[in-house]
Design a protein around this nucleic acid. Sequence first.
DNA 1: TTCGTTCTATATCTATTGCTACAGAACTCC
DNA 2: GGAGTTCTGTAGCAATAGATATAGAACGAA
Lengths: 201, 201
Amino acid sequence: MAVSAKTLKTLGRPRGFDMDQALDRAMEVFWRKGYEGASLSDLTEAMGINPPSLYAAFGNKEGLFLKVLDRYQAGPGNYLEQAMSAPTAREAAERLLYGAVEGQCSQAKPGGCLLVHGALPPGLGAIQEELQSRRTAAAQVIRKRFERAKDEGDLPRDVDAGDLARFVFAVVGGMAVQAAGGVKKRELKKVADMAMKAFPT
Amino acid sequence: MAVSAKTLKTLGRPRGFDMDQALDRAMEVFWRKGYEGASLSDLTEAMGINPPSLYAAFGNKEGLFLKVLDRYQAGPGNYLEQAMSAPTAREAAERLLYGAVEGQCSQAKPGGCLLVHGALPPGLGAIQEELQSRRTAAAQVIRKRFERAKDEGDLPRDVDAGDLARFVFAVVGGMAVQAAGGVKKRELKKVADMAMKAFPT
DNA sequence: TTCGTTCTATATCTATTGCTACAGAACTCC
DNA sequence: GGAGTTCTGTAGCAATAGATATAGAACGAA
């Protein structure tokens, strides 16, 4: 949670709504309906503001979505980075998988992962590319953690870090698909259990 | 490929376009842009017909999509059923995973799986529910195959067929997400390799 | 107070969405 | 040849999409 500087010399009329709260509301809408499915009316209504305020603050719908993505990855989606700080590769994978279960099945939030079902199919141009690049970036983070593990000796040298990362990431993505469809947390945990059986010793 | 009866007594003016070909064209559009992203103009242009012909033949956009889904599962997506006819559970899982790699990475077709990224987030109502129910149906098919395998003795009795099916299905879904983003076939095969390491002996 | 700036609210713009009315064309049956 | 039926093409419908013009309200600085 980034603490906004409270007393920043503002010029002109101060903003009448709370930025972070508005972003959270918008996040929920995008999360629940996807980028295309979320209309400006949906967004402005949920955020409690009018279109001109939205455009003044975020530029356009796409700009708002990007801000929402940042906030998502720093908030509900930060189980990735949290997991990477685990002492060993195996523990990192475990924390990632079970963290994904929690993050994708929270009752308070919509199911699934915003980075996955915000917009999957190509053809949305910039939005799709942005999400795709963030997903590959996430996979790279995992790969680098595994490579470090090889250097540190807690992962066999003959393991391909990229392949292993892609596998773990695929399971996370697959769980997101199922979570979006309402699969229960208990069942997803079993998926994570099984995935860990494939983890090299 | 369903062979249409050529000489069926038709009443009135005969249809001026080929149904199956039009469905294939529509499938590609939906596959590439998702349900919402595919506009009527996109569809009619690709199908080479005008809106009234589309509505006369399929009712509406949703009806067209359902017909396309049927054709997808019978065509590019039929690697599921093909895999289930394998003699053992292990072989069925293998054929499913590697079949998914082929089906989702074909160069001739768009990447990914239509059932996954046709429409993921809820909020699209009927469409989302339809896709979700088809996905769970697919998972059930796998589960039943594994249960049969338990009866036939090629899968240990203490294995939960449902959990195993969900795991395999999650990997397939995760691969679809990655394939939609352009991951190469060679890399996805490695994901399938790793998944098989978790398969009970 | 007055100015310059920045935000907000109402009302609306244009383009596109999914969809259809209508008239005519193409077929079978009689 | 009609009569009856079904398809096709043109043109356009109402609704909604994303985005804005405009006027006024709320602030700090002078």
